[in-house]
Structures are given as structure tokens and as C-alpha cells.
Design a protein around this nucleic acid. Structure first.
Length: 356
DNA sequence: AAATCGTGGAG
DNA sequence: TCTCCAAGATT
């Protein structure tokens, strides 16, 4: 069995998409800015998770100019809890870059910060009707299966193959429908496990289905498990205020949190006092253990021992030591800065102690 | 090429 | 509880 002609795939895909397309918020107003925001938020993130963030973000920033005029802290504030926070900083930078004129070509879009091959193709096709390929995880899976493509689609040769195949399926008259139809098919029918082949517009021509390789494709390398890391956090209270620190670019970059650090070589003893001293706080004999927090990132499984400490109200704001960009005393209830889920969990340990 | 970078839902 | 992994980009 040979792969189906691109024209035949397009011909059955587009009518199918028009008949089943979900009513998603970014499909109501496919303006370039709204599409860029949605595509950025949707990177490695589920639709159901993104929807409320998308509404809040576009409500505050209806266009790129509004976002460009805002502070990075405010943009991060609208992103808190969504993860992969670098996306928010990139989007903010892209909004500023777009003040010179929103790019209307694949090349121009690709030059925006945080916009890679997929996002450039998605915005070009959905917002501008350009017949560009947008190969995300859904499209990768759908194409590998319909073609019975057994190579690793993430390697350079595989990526080129998928890119060319989708470009062949594309057409200027239905560019948006092809891009969204391919993703809709992967998201709602051709799922990673137990795909609903009976509902697939391509069931008659799917090579994987006819050779019983549906579950085996796409042929992806096994992913690695997160590495276990131990660390120590310090929650310093000054009356009703808690000490928060702003992280540098990288992990949770730009977000605020109670200070923490990985334990050096598995040593836990004295790390809390060391951390407090580094932050420039007075006598640390008040330090007491409050509990533990476990937080799993994509590549790290972090177990933090949380210590508590109270200082008098005349203690000034500590000087940010090396790692952190800044420190501040913030109201514990409504800090007013962007916090990660990890930070919330650390602060939650204090709440648990008080209520229990 | 391989690491890095969050979070939560589903099975 | 454990595994998988989701509309990726960058270095």
C-alpha cells in the first residue's frame, strides 16, 4: 500500500474539518495577534488549560501594542501557572518587535522571538491564508500514520519529510483549514492511544491502519525520567509579609518565590541557615522545619525541605545574593507578583502549619 | 544532537 | 500511584 496523493488527503480533510471543528475562542477572531497568542500558549500545553489564560490575556492585551506597552512582570502575571514561562517573555518581546509592523510572511514571523517553524507556519496559514506547513505533535502523528512513515520524525531527515509532505497537502484556497484540520484530526480522532479510526476521514487510505502499525507510529525515542533533586527553602515572615525573590532567566525565569536552592551534594544540614545568612538576615536560631514539598518538572523531580523563620518588622529588604535578581517583602495573601506553582506549594506549607 | 524548560489531565 | 504526554523553541 502506497501513501495517498496529497490532493486526495486535502480533499477529504477540509470538508471533515468544516463539519466537526470545535468552537475554540481563538477561532472566532483569527487576527494575527490573537493567533500568535493562542499558538504560543498552546505550545506543549493542552487546549483546556489554555482557554481561560487566553481569555484573560486578550482581555488585557487586545492587540500587540497593548502588550508591548506593559511591563514584563504584568505579562508574567497573566502567565503564572501556565508553565514554560520563557514563552511569556518571548511573546512580550515579539509584541514590541511587531510595533514596527506585524510580519506577514513566514520568514518575518519566524524572526520573532519565540516563533519557530511550527508557530510561524500556523500564524501564516491561519491568520494570513499563506499555504505554509505547521507541523506540531498532532500533525507529526497524523502524517506518520497515514503514510506509514517509520523513521524518527524528530530527526532532521524526518522533519524535512513531514514539512514537505504537509506543504504538498497545503493549498492557498484553504490554508487555514488544512493547518487546523490536521491538528484537529490529531487532537480529536488520531490520538496517541486508541485512535478512533472509524471517525477518520482518511481511514480508507491510512497505511498504518492497513498494516496494523497504528500504535507503533509515530516512531519516537523513549523519553527520559526526571532526575531526583533535593533542596532547601526558607519562608521568612515579617509580620504579614513574606520574603520573595525574583528568579533569573532559566528555570521559572522572572517568577517570584521564597528563596530556595538545591542541597550541595545531598547535604541538608545547615543549608537553611546558610541560605538565610546569604540573604543577609539576622540571627537564624529561630529557623524551624515546616515540612516538605515535592514538585515535578519535565526533567527534575524536586523535593524541598521548607524552613520557617520570623523576623521583626524593622528588618529591611535583604540584598539579592548572586543568583536572585531582586528581593521584596510581599503580602502573603496577595503577593502582587507572579508566582510559580512551586512557590505556591512552598507558601502552602506555612498555611498548613498554621491551620493544622 | 541533546538538554532545557511547567503543569496537570487521563488512563 | 505511575506513566504518558500536550497546537515547541532555543541553545
Amino acid at each position: 500500500m502506497r501513501p495517498a496523493p496529497a490532493q486526495a488527503l486535502r480533499g477529504s480533510l477540509v470538508p471533515w474539518y468544516r463539519s466537526v471543528a470545535r468552537d475554540l475562542p481563538w477561532r472566532q477572531d483569527p487576527s494575527p495577534w490573537a493567533v500568535l497568542v493562542s499558538e504560543t500558549m498552546l505550545q506543549q500545553t493542552r487546549v483546556d488549560t489554555v482557554v481561560p489564560y487566553f481569555h484573560r490575556f486578550l482581555d488585557r492585551f487586545p492587540d500587540a501594542a497593548a502588550c508591548a506597552a506593559a511591563s514584563e512582570d504584568e505579562v508574567l502575571g497573566l502567565w503564572q501557572g501556565l508553565g514554560y514561562y520563557r514563552r511569556a517573555r518571548f511573546l512580550h518581546a515579539a509584541a514590541k518587535a511587531a510595533q514596527a509592523g506585524f510580519p506577514e510572511t513566514v520568514q518575518g514571523l519566524r524572526a520573532l522571538p519565540g516563533v519557530g517553524a511550527y508557530t510561524a507556519g500556523a500564524v501564516a496559514s491561519i491568520a494570513f491564508g499563506i499555504p505554509a506547513a505547521a507541523v506540531d505533535g498532532n500533525v507529526e502523528r497524523v502524517i506518520c500514520r497515514v503514510d506509514g512513515f517509520g523513521d524518527d520524525p524528530r530527526r532532521a531527515a524526518g522533519r524535512r519529510h513531514l514539512q514537505a509532505r504537509v506543504e504538498a497537502i497545503q493549498d492557498a484556497s484553504v490554508a487555514s483549514e488544512v493547518t487546523q484540520g490536521l491538528m484537529e484530526l490529531g487532537a480529536t480522532v488520531c490520538s496517541p492511544q486508541r485512535p478512533d479510526c472509524g471517525a477518520c476521514p482518511w481511514r480508507a487510505v491510512c497505511v498504518a491502519r492497513h498494516t496494523d502499525r497504528i500504535e507503533a507510529l509515530p516512531n519516537l525515542p523513549a523519553r527520559k525520567k526526571p532526575v531526583a533533586v533535593q533542596g532547601t527553602a526558607v519562608v521568612v515572615m515579617r509580620g504579614e509579609q513574606v520574603l520573595l525573590a525574583r528568579r533569573p532567566p532559566g528555570l521559572l525565569g522572572g517568577l517570584w518565590e521564597p528563596p530556595w536552592q538545591p542541597d550541595p551534594a545531598g547535604e541538608t544540614a545547615g543549608v537553611a541557615a546558610l541560605l538565610a545568612a546569604r540573604v543577609g538576615l539576622p540571627a537564624t536560631q529561630d529557623l524551624h522545619p515546616l515540612g516538605q514539598v515535592v514538585h515535578v518538572f519535565t526533567h527534575r523531580r524536586l523535593t524541598l525541605t521548607v524552613w520557617g523563620m520570623a523576623v521583626s518588622t524593622d528588618v529591611p529588604t535583604p540584598v539579592a545574593p548572586g543568583f536572585y535578581e531582586a528581593m521584596a517583602w510581599c503580602p502573603r495573601g496577595v503577593p502582587g507578583v507572579a508566582l510559580s506553582k512551586l512557590a505556591h506549594r512552598i507558601l502552602g506549607v506555612v498555611g498548613d502549619g498554621e491551620s493544622g
